[in-house]
Write a protein that binds this DNA or RNA. Structure first.
Length: 945
RNA sequence: GUCCCGGUAGCCCAAAGGCAGAGGCGAUGGUCUCAAACACCAUUCAGUGUGGGUUCGAAUCCCACUCGGGACACCA
């Protein structure tokens, strides 16, 4: 039997050996706390460990612990940050790198409901499973800092931050948040007037509470919100897609008037916008944030309503076109609609204006009902045909004095501007379409260019038809005209220049179980009270029925029910909030899953601190601005681009509040952001279009077959549902974690999406095997490096590689770094013998990428300690250049000859050498020379006359 | 519809405006083997999506088109 057993060399770098090396070094690192990053002070403090080294804070967007387990796409970013962190450690930095878990939220809860197990049980099991999977990859995380958002010790501080926000207001004059107590002082002292003018002392507790709610940065308010019956919860604007569906689950979302918690993020709109300039982020993400915040400059204009005292206020970016405003439109939900709606249709009203109703009130009611019953997605699919009805009311154009009809139409959105517009069909495409459909007059107030045959003209041009007895804009350019008319409106007190934002306040409550409870209770009058810090955390109660109450996804006439309200014992509480024990009812909404991820970068810094969210000295060390006026923040934050306006906007907002209140020294949470690409995978579909298991597909002559049947190939995401998931566990088992790490980094640039190809993984495996063989004899296990001096070519190859790899590491170009290391490794393989003075730096160069094999080789080379803090090799500049370089001689850009020249050759020497070359002479054929371009030492280009 | 990003060898990807190739996969041939796998050695393949322009010289800069990916989409 023995002669059929393959004779594998006993010391070959096989998957088995890799597995043994890897688990041994993982244990070793853990035992020694190799990746513990010392703080300057506190429980994790070690002033000696941090004092003399520059710091680096590297972070990944932390994961949701999915029940499905990881596929090879998930750890891409984690591997990249680990490689970079290891490189930084070897270049003398104190590196903080860890990974926590974002474990509250819908998916975790949905998974629990599916499996019939409590979300805490499933979530904790998922975290344990994920930790296991990730540990196997050899990620150098500081495990002491691995927080989880569901731990009461963590969400105590999430609740604490909520209270900080709740107990703050935005002082516009100071341009920052301040404690609400300072506002109360102003009211009490009379230095600030109450909204209705009565002295503060005369207001009841409920009235005071109501006044303060209009200032608090977190407040509960009855407002139109996004209600998603299919999920049984309300959602933030950011969680609703453009076609009116929930981002998660793709259910229809309806408008409903509900009392919900909101965060006054709009107070920070200008700072969230302006401070983007301080950040080193991809332009695409900055652009998305700018668009989401949607700053636009314009003017507010008041329109008198014929027969009413109320005025309709509009926001417009084109006040210069005011003379062309021939009608007005209110959003169907606008509060003034009921006030202005006329009793009867005026004489001679056009038929299309009435919607066929007998009175304006009936028309308005019918239109509103129709608009409300349609979900946004239906409005969308019905195209952009303009609909609306006349209210029977007329407003007065303040510059022309003309009576103009007031409509309601759903192309005007309640959520933007004032929910009302002045319609200028001559300069606005939407207004033009509406005007055509409703036979309304069109007045051009900007002269279109000659030959203009379009409809609305939105471009630049001189104003026309824009004069009355007091003011004329005629002839002015758009910008000037805006300025003039705005001044005129301000002087008359009927308008002013203003800035409008698209950003809305953040809807912060959810009707789900699996989230942080609010640290808020209500007294018997329904006044909300913040719990004192001493009562934190408010723990999430264990309840029997944690399922959300969900409804028919299309049924808009439903309303949410909070799971926590089912537990009367928890809801009813007798507490002493400073004025003796009293009965209170707890808030039963929970926070959205974004809450925990809004501030975790701070808790990583000081996870064991029970007194403070983070010790200011620790925060300043890791995140403080490097220069006055700088943003501060995490040095490198890596994650997917899908969080462009959700997590990244919310986290910036919370951070700025904490900055204003003096809890942190950094203005921004994440100084540098990098979006990694996605690992894609081929999806194979059968004739019915169903995915077939990708692993079972065979390729023949460029066609693909599954069980004999031809299938179609397309590129898609990796995942269970597409039957194309490849797990890190299987790759580790087949080749080892170092091979997986190396392959993922070698596939291409980090920020580019690219398809996974399991067949190609073997290339990275071969590289490591060759590296191993260059140091270790496969049959004896003996170290085979020599103490000889390397030859000139090898020495220069080494220093070129060091130089290149360093630059690539700095720039996160791991794919090219690997190519350079491979080149050197192949050079050594060919050379036959490997000098120690080359093998050692090569092992160090590879160490950040393939740390386990590097540690093992380092030990075999005779070193007692781990190479994690070993200095990264430094290139000798004199050896980076080749001794002789090949100079190309071109004639009109075409290569005609090559010269071997020293790199230091001068332009004139090189030119002479090139012109003297026989091949060049014959190619020129005696022609005159017009010009010679010399780029010493690599190129000469001769241009004949 | 608007705005971003990208099209280089059969595939994944490299190339400060200067010889289109660093690296890997695959394929082919060879060494090893009774044979195969592994490993090793060698070879192979594109003129850079298309059309113009700038330049002594363009994958690289500019313009138009095209294909693919992404973001936004009645935002007044």
């Amino acid at each position: 039997m023995s002669d059929t057993t393959p004779a594998v060399e006993p010391h070959r770098y096989t998957a088995d050996l890799a597995a043994e090396i890897e688990s041994r070094w993982q244990d070793e690192w853990e035992k020694r706390g190799t990746f513990h990053a010392p703080n300057p002070t506190g429980p994790l403090g070690d002033p000696d460990g941090s004092a003399d080294r520059p710091k680096a804070y590297v972070m990944d967007m932390f994961p949701y612990p999915s029940g499905a387990g990881l596929h090879v796409g998930h750890p891409l970013g984690y591997i990249a940050t680990d490689v970079y962190s290891r490189y930084l450690r070897m270049t003398g930095h104190n590196v903080l790198h860890t990974l926590g878990y974002d474990a509250f939220g819908l998916p975790a809860e949905q998974y629990a409901v599916q499996t019939g197990t409590h979300p805490r049980v499933t979530t904790e099991a998922n975290i344990a499973n994920m930790r296991q999977q990730l540990r196997r990859l050899g990620l150098g995380h500081d495990s002491r800092r691995s927080v989880s958002t569901i731990d009461p010790g963590y969400y105590k501080w999430t609740q604490w931050i909520f209270l900080q926000i709740f107990n703050s207001w935005y002082d516009e004059s100071a341009g920052r948040a301040r404690p609400i107590a300072e506002l109360v002082e102003q009211f009490a002292a009379g230095t600030r007037e109450t909204p209705d003018g009565r002295p503060w002392s005369r207001l009841s507790a409920a009235e005071r509470s109501s006044v303060l709610d209009d200032f608090r940065l977190a407040y509960a308010k009855q407002a139109p919100v996004n209600w998603c019956p299919g999920l049984g919860t309300v959602l933030a604007n950011e969680e609703v897609t453009a076609d009116g569906r929930s981002e998660r689950g793709n259910f229809p979302v309806f408008r409903a008037n509900l009392r919900q918690w909101m965060m006054r993020i709009t107070a920070y709109a200008d700072r969230l916008l302006g401070d983007l300039d301080l950040l080193d982020w991809p332009e695409a993400i900055k652009l998305q944030q700018r668009n989401w915040i949607g700053r636009s400059e314009g003017a507010r204009v008041d329109f008198a309503v014929d027969g009413h005292d109320e005025r309709i206020t509009v926001f417009t970016t084109r006040p210069d076109t005011l003379f062309g405003a021939t009608y007005m439109v209110l959003a169907p939900e606008h509060g003034l609609v009921d006030t202005v709606v006329a009793d009867a249709w005026p004489e001679g009203v056009p038929g299309v204006w009435t919607g066929g109703a007998a009175t304006p009130a009936e028309a308005v009611a019918a239109y509103r009902k129709q608009a409300q019953s349609k979900s946004d997605v239906e409005r969308q699919t019905e195209g952009k045909d303009k609909t609306g009805v006349f209210t029977g009311a007329h407003a007065v154009n303040p510059v022309t004095g003309k009576r103009i009809p007031v409509f309601i139409a759903d192309y005007v959105l309640m959520g933007y501007g004032t929910g009302a517009i002045m319609a200028v069909p001559g300069q606005d495409e939407r207004d033009w379409e509406f005007a055509e459909a409703f036979e309304l007059p069109i007045v051009r107030t900007v002269e279109p260019p000659e030959g203009w045959e379009g409809e609305a003209f939105t471009g630049q041009g001189p104003a026309i038809n824009s004069a009355n007895d007091e003011i004329s804009l005629n002839g002015l350019a758009v910008g000037e005209a805006k300025q003039r008319i705005t001044e005129w409106l301000e002087a008359r007190g009927i308008g002013e220049g203003t800035v409008n934002y698209r950003l809305r306040d953040w809807l912060f409550s959810r009707q789900r179980y699996w989230g942080e409870p609010f640290p808020i209770v209500y007294d018997e009058e329904g006044v909300p009270h913040a719990l004192p810090d001493s009562m934190l955390p408010v723990e999430l109660p264990e309840i029997e029925d944690y399922s959300p109450r969900t409804f028919d996804p299309d049924d808009a006439d439903t309303s949410p029910e909070t799971p926590l309200s089912r537990n009367e014992e928890w809801v009813e509480a007798t507490l002493d909030l400073g004025d003796g024990p009293k009965k209170y009812r707890r808030e039963t909404n929970t926070m959205p899953n974004w809450a925990g991820s809004c501030w975790y970068e701070l808790r990583y810094l000081d996870p064991e601190n029970t007194e403070q969210v983070v010790d200011p000295a620790v925060e300043e060390y890791w995140m403080g601005p490097k220069a006055p006026g700088g943003s501060g923040g995490v040095d490198l934050y890596v994650g997917g681009a899908e969080h462009a306006v959700l997590h990244l906007l919310y986290a910036r907002f919370w951070h700025k509040v904490l900055f204003d209140l003096g809890h942190v020294s950094s203005k921004e949470p994440f100084h540098r952001l990098f979006n990694q690409g996605m690992i894609q995978a081929y999806v194979y579909r059968d004739s019915r279009g169903f995915p077939v298991p990708a692993a079972e597909v065979e390729e023949r002559d460029g066609k693909f077959f599954h069980q004999g049947e031809q299938v179609k190939r397309e590129l898609g995401k990796m995942g269970k549902s597409l039957k194309n998931a490849v797990t890190p566990d299987e790759i580790c088992a087949e080749y080892g974690a170092d091979t997986l790490r190396l392959y993922e980094m070698a596939m291409g640039p980090l920020d580019v999406s690219r398809p996974w190809d399991t067949r190609a993984v073997i290339g990275s495996y071969r590289f490591l095997q060759r590296l191993w063989r260059n140091v270790v004899d496969e049959s004896t296990g003996e170290v085979v490096v020599t103490d000889d001096e390397p030859d000139e070519a090898t020495l220069r190859a080494l220093h070129k590689t060091i130089d290149g790899v360093r630059a690539d590491m700095e720039g996160l170009r791991f794919n090219t770094a690997i190519a350079k290391a491979t080149e050197l490794n192949n050079h050594l393989t060919k050379a036959g013998s490997v000098p120690r003075s080359v093998a050692e730096p090569l092992v160090l160069l590879v160490a950040p990428l393939a740390p386990h094999i590097a540690e093992e080789l380092w030990r075999k080379l005779g070193h007692e300690t781990s190479l994690v803090h070993e200095p990264f090799p430094v290139a000798d500049p004199a050896l980076v250049q080749d001794e002789a370089v090949t100079c190309v001689v071109q004639i009109k850009g075409k290569v005609k000859a090559r010269l071997e020249v020293p790199p230091s050759i001068s332009d004139s020497e090189l030119e002479a050498l090139a012109l003297a070359d026989a091949a060049v002479q014959s190619a020129l054929g005696g022609a005159d020379i017009r010009k010679v371009v010399v780029r010493a030492p690599k190129l000469v280009n001769i241009v004949p006359a």
